[in-house]
């Protein structure tokens, strides 16, 4: 590998870009690919997209011999808006699945470190927090407050981001009202369709922990490209 290429790779990783190092195993020739920053379609870049999505390096056969695609994904992040009971159950599950978790809630009595030990708490309003934390393609955002004053700014910001998963707690009726409000704010039906609501896989979850399981399962399904909805 050329030292200059390694420097470029390290820079891309520091900038949290999803980058793939493609190595021709016969010639040793290498280059960096940014599969999600281009719309190109050819075998190698498609395979690189798949490898990033699956979080797993792979080798593709090409006319010039086998090419190994080593992937460098930035860390997964989960932003939970609403330091509610379900969040208490969701935090350790997400942390166990290797997400960097941030709980956002400006209401001090909710987002206390007594209720949420061992997790980053952010007491800013969701849109202010997101403007600083930059949710990206490796980020999931869930809103759990049931309060439009908090959920809506978070969802509006989420819809303008590349977050791979956006979910909102609330019944079908609540979700329909949410759609009307977001439409008024200028979001299309296509935008709105990015929001998973009612949140979570339908596993009949009742308790906060069960709902957290259904949310974590849905996030995982979307991350791994197995989403049914």
């Amino acid at each position: 590998m050329k030292t200059a290429l390694l420097e470029d790779l390290q820079k891309a990783r520091a900038e949290k870009r999803q980058v793939v190092l493609a190595t021709n195993l016969t010639s040793g020739e290498q280059k960096l690919l940014y599969p999600f920053e281009s719309k190109e379609i050819y075998d190698v870049i498609e395979a690189a997209r798949g490898a990033l999505r699956n979080d797993k390096p792979t080798t593709v056969e090409t006319e010039d011999g086998p090419v190994f695609l080593n992937i460098f994904n930035p860390p997964l992040r989960l932003f939970i808006v609403g330091a509610v009971h379900i969040a208490q159950a969701l935090v350790p599950m997400a942390a166990g699945a290797d997400y960097e978790v941030t709980v956002i809630d400006p209401r001090r009595s909710f987002g206390s470190s007594f209720r949420f030990p061992n997790v980053t708490l952010d007491d800013r309003w969701p849109d202010d927090a997101f403007a600083d934390l930059h949710p990206d393609r490796r980020s999931a955002i869930v809103t759990l407050t049931h309060d439009a004053k908090l959920d809506d700014p978070a969802l509006q910001y989420a819809l303008r981001s590349d977050a791979f998963y956006i979910g909102a707690l609330g019944s079908g009726r609540t979700h329909a009202k949410r759609q009307q409000r977001l439409q008024k704010a200028g979001f299309s039906d296509e935008d709105f369709a990015r929001i998973h609501g009612p949140i979570g896989l339908d596993i009949g979850a009742k308790s906060p922990a069960e709902i957290a399981i259904s949310i974590m399962a849905e996030i995982t399904a979307v991350l791994r490209g197995k989403a049914g909805s």
Binding site: T23, L25, K56, P57, T58, T59, F68, N70, I71
Partner: peptide, 15 residues
């Protein structure tokens, strides 16, 4: 050195 392929219960994954 980079692990490029594994079969069976290899101790370290590709990459």
């Amino acid at each position: 050195a980079t692990v490029i392929t594994t079969w069976g219960s290899a101790p370290r994954p590709a990459g």
